[in-house]
Amino acid sequence: MGKETPGIIMISVEEALEKVLSYVSVLDVEEKPILQCLGQVLNEDVYSAIDVPPRDNSAMDGYAVRAEDVVGATPSSPVFLDVIGEVKAGDIPKEEVGALSALRIMTGAPIPRGADSVVQFEDVYSAIDVPPRDNSAMDGYAVRAEDVVGATPSSPVFLDVIGEVKAGDIPKEEVGALSALRIMTGAPIPRGADSVVQFEDTDEALRRERPPFQIGILHQV
C-alpha cells in the first residue's frame, strides 16, 4: 500500500514496476535472418552445439612449453629448450611438444599436444641470440657424416632426400639413417644431421624437382 505525506504519494517498488509495465506490451515472437536482427532481443537462450573455440588456445604471443620443463627457471639459471616449430592463429599444430622442447605460438593459436603452458616472449632470455643449432655455410644436403664415409664417384652412397630447409625456416624433419635434407646457405642444420655435402659433390647437383627423391653422394665430407 502506498503512503501519503504532505504533497508526495509514496508507492512500493513493486507497484512502481507494475505501473511502468502497464504502459508497454510484449511483442510477438518472430523469426528473421540474423543480419536483420540488429537492436532486437532474443526470445530465448541460444546454445552452441560445439565448443567455441574448439580447443584451448594461447592468450599471448610466446612459446608453448611443458610446465615441468621450466619450473625454477631464472635469468641467472635459465632453462634451454629446442624450438621445433611455430603455430599461428588458425593453424592446426602438427608437432607435439616433448621434453625440453617448445613451439613458438601466437595469440589465438591452439595449444599443441604435449604443452600445458605458454611463456610470453618478454620472459624468454633470448630467442635470437641463442639459436638452437648452427647454420649452413653453403647450399647442399644436410646429412649424417657416418652415412657418407667412403663415398666416391665410382661407389656413391645413395640417400633419400626427404625435404628442404631455407634460410629463416625452422626444420621440421629430422635427418635419419641414409636420408638427407636439401639445405640453403644460412638455413639451420636440422636435427640428426652433423654435416653438409655441397651440391657439386652429389650426382644431382642440377636437380630441380621437389623432394622426395634420391641423390648419390660422390665425395665424403
Rank of each mutant, 00 (worst) to 15 (best):
M1V: 05
E4A: 12
T5S: 10
T5D: 06
I8M: 06
I8E: 04
S22N: 13
V26K: 15
V29P: 12
E30C: 01
L35F: 14
Q36D: 14
C37K: 13
L38E: 11
Q40K: 15
N43D: 15
E44A: 13
P54D: 12
A59N: 08
Y63A: 15
Y63M: 12
A64R: 11
V65T: 02
R66L: 12
A67M: 13
A67Y: 02
G72W: 02
T74L: 09
S77I: 05
L81C: 04
G85V: 00
V87A: 03
D91C: 14
D91M: 13
P93M: 04
L100Q: 07
T107Q: 03
G108Q: 01
G108Y: 04
P110C: 04
I111A: 09
R113S: 13
V124I: 12
Y125P: 03
S126F: 01
A127D: 12
V130Y: 11
P132N: 14
S136N: 08
G140M: 03
Y141K: 04
Y141P: 01
R144F: 05
E146Y: 06
E146L: 08
V148F: 00
A151R: 05
D160V: 01
V165L: 06
K166Q: 10
I170V: 15
K172M: 10
E174G: 00
V175C: 06
L178N: 00
S179E: 07
T185L: 05
S195L: 02
V196K: 03
F199N: 12
D203M: 08
A205D: 14
L206H: 11
E209V: 12
E209G: 06
P212V: 15
P212W: 12
P212K: 14
I215T: 02
I217V: 15
L218C: 04
